[in-house]
Each structure stands twice: as structure tokens, then as C-alpha cells.
């Protein structure tokens, strides 16, 4: 038995426009809940991109201010060289920093266009003798106040802080996303029940003349699926806008701790796909359960 496409398209369309306020409410709830999920994913992506700045044994980075003169750089360099706690250190000039930056952002020419080597700070990458957090921190602190030093970033501290931030933020976001995904599933369930109620005579006749359960179910599930997908589309647009805003803020305020939170469009694509799939799943599941309960009743 073939299910006729024109029938399915007509019924689904009618359902969607029959109760516009409920359709809009459902779409918006899906959009909000998935936007939260998307934000949580953006944070996780940002954190996972972090570790790039700290290669090998580098335990802290001494960032110089942009306009540090030769003398200031030389004095920090010699201080590092003479410090007994420092095993090795390496100066990274603007050209090298730009090269790092370039490889980090290679998929986003739009980002690279806005930055020239002169905008980036130089730094010393320092490998200490004893990679113990307390020792490293007191060592790094010696350089904090030196003239020409912007700040000192500690690998352990940096990663610790970020992990704290990200786990707190993404836990909160995940809970909120889960709660609102549940809410949108329930709303979806209710929307479809309302649609079923509006069409209860039709459904009754369909059952009596021997329409299969799937035949009755499909237009309603498709309705939920479309609502879920449209909501997911809105949330994907929202997450993209959020990522754009974060990127702009980061670039305007100079570079630092949260650089890797500026996601490129290609990093956002998998997040968008996750959102669309989740939206479709919420829609199809909520409506599928609603219809099945109705049919078995």
C-alpha cells in the first residue's frame, strides 16, 4: 500500500496552519531550548580549542605589551636567562605569533583580514626546571610586575580556570537545555494532541475504514518534525549570531584568555547539524508519542 504524497503534504500543511498560535509557541520553545544546547556546545568547543597555545613543556607565557621597547624585552630576556628556576625560554616575535594565529584561524580568512602582525603581542614561552604548580606560580609572579610585561599566563592555572568556567557554564547550560528540551517535547506532545483533537472525527473515520496506524500517524509526525526543524533553524541562527558577537568582542578587546572561544563558521557547522538533528528528534518523538497514545486509546 503506497502512501500518497499529495495526501500527506495536504494534511500536514492543513495541520500546521489550523492552529497558528500553538504552532508558533511550539517552534519558539524548540528554538529557545536548542539555542541553550547550542550555547553549551559553543563553550565546549571553545575550551577544546584552548590547549593549542601551550605546547610541550611550556608552563607559563610572559606576554609583553604591544609597545614594549627593545630594552624592556631585553631585560625580561636576561632576567629569564639568569633565573635559576627557568630551564629554557624562547622569545616569540610578532611574525611568529602571526604565523600561529594564521594556522589557528586558517579556515577563517575573514578573521585573518582584520588582523596584521603589528596588532599581536610578543611573548616569552618559558619551560621551568620543576613543573610544580606552586613553584611555577611563584616563578612566574616574579615577572608579572616587570616593565613592559602585559601579563603572565600559567598553563595549569589557565587551563584550570577555563575548565572551571567551562564545566560550570556548560553544566548549567546543559541542565537548562535539557529542561527546556523536555518542555518543548511536552509542548510538542500537546500541540499534536490538540491537532489530533481537532481532527478526531477524521481519525475516527480513518480507523473505521481501515487506515493503518502509520497512515494516520505520518501527517502528525511530519507536522512535529517540521516544527522541530524550523525551531532548530532559528536556534542555529541564534547560536551563529552569538558566536559572531563573541568573536567581535574578543577581537575588539585584544587577544587573551578566551581567544579560542571565537569559533569559525566551519566550527559552527557541526553544532548547527547537532541542533537540527535534535530539533527533528524532539519533533518526531513528541508527536509520535502523542499520536500513538491516541491511537491505542
Amino acid at each position: 500500500m503506497a502512501i500518497r504524497m499529495d495526501y500527506v503534504a495536504r494534511e500536514t500543511g492543513n495541520n500546521l496552519i489550523r492552529n497558528p498560535s500553538l504552532t508558533i509557541a511550539t517552534v519558539l520553545t524548540v528554538a529557545v531550548s536548542l539555542a541553550l544546547l547550542g550555547a553549551a556546545l559553543v563553550i565546549q568547543q571553545g575550551v577544546s580549542g584552548l590547549n593549542g597555545s601551550f605546547e610541550d613543556d611550556v608552563e607559563f607565557i610572559v606576554w609583553m605589551v604591544n609597545d614594549a621597547d627593545q630594552e624592556q624585552v631585553a631585560s625580561v630576556d636576561s632576567a629569564l636567562a639568569s633565573s635559576p628556576g627557568v630551564k629554557d625560554h624562547r622569545f616569540v616575535n610578532q611574525a611568529e605569533t602571526y604565523a600561529e594565529f594564521e594556522s589557528f584561524w586558517k579556515e577563517s580568512p575573514e578573521v585573518l583580514d582584520t588582523v596584521s602582525p603589528g596588532d599581536l603581542p610578543t611573548s616569552f614561552r618559558v619551560v621551568p626546571e620543576i613543573p610544580d604548580l606552586a613553584v611555577v606560580e611563584s616563578l612566574g609572579a616574579e615577572f608579572e610586575g616587570q616593565p613592559g610585561v602585559l601579563k603572565v599566563d600559567f598553563a595549569a592555572d589557565y587551563i584550570k580556570r577555563l575548565n572551571q568556567f567551562s564545566s560550570a557554564a556548560s553544566l548549567t547550560m546543559s541542565i537548562a537545555a535539557f529542561a527546556s528540551a523536555l518542555a518543548s517535547s511536552l509542548l510538542m506532545y500537546n500541540t499534536i494532541r490538540t491537532a489530533l483533537f481537532a481532527r478526531r472525527r477524521e481519525v475516527e473515520v480513518m480507523r473505521l475504514v481501515g487506515a493503518t496506524n502509520w497512515f494516520i500517524r505520518i501527517p502528525f509526525m511530519l507536522e512535529g518534525l517540521i516544527q522541530g526543524l524550523v525551531g532548530a533553524m532559528f536556534s542555529a541562527i541564534g547560536v551563529w549570531a552569538l558566536a559572531r558577537t563573541i568573536r567581535d568582542v574578543i577581537f575588539k578587546s585584544g587577544f587573551g584568555l578566551f581567544d579560542s572561544f571565537a569559533l569559525t563558521n566551519s566550527q559552527l557547522l557541526p553544532i548547527a547539524i547537532i541542533l537540527l538533528v535534535s530539533g527533528a528528534a524532539i519533533g518526531a518523538l513528541g508527536s509520535g508519542v502523542a499520536v500513538t497514545r491516541y491511537l491505542d486509546a
Binding site: M1, A2, R4, Y7, E202, V209, G210, A211, F215, I216
Partner: peptide, 9 residues
């Protein structure tokens, strides 16, 4: 409708 919902051509 009765024919449509049981998939008659």
C-alpha cells in the same frame, strides 16, 4: 476519503 486513507490509487 475512505478510499484515499487506505491507499487506493
Amino acid at each position: 476519503f475512505a478510499l484515499e486513507v487506505i491507499g487506493r490509487p
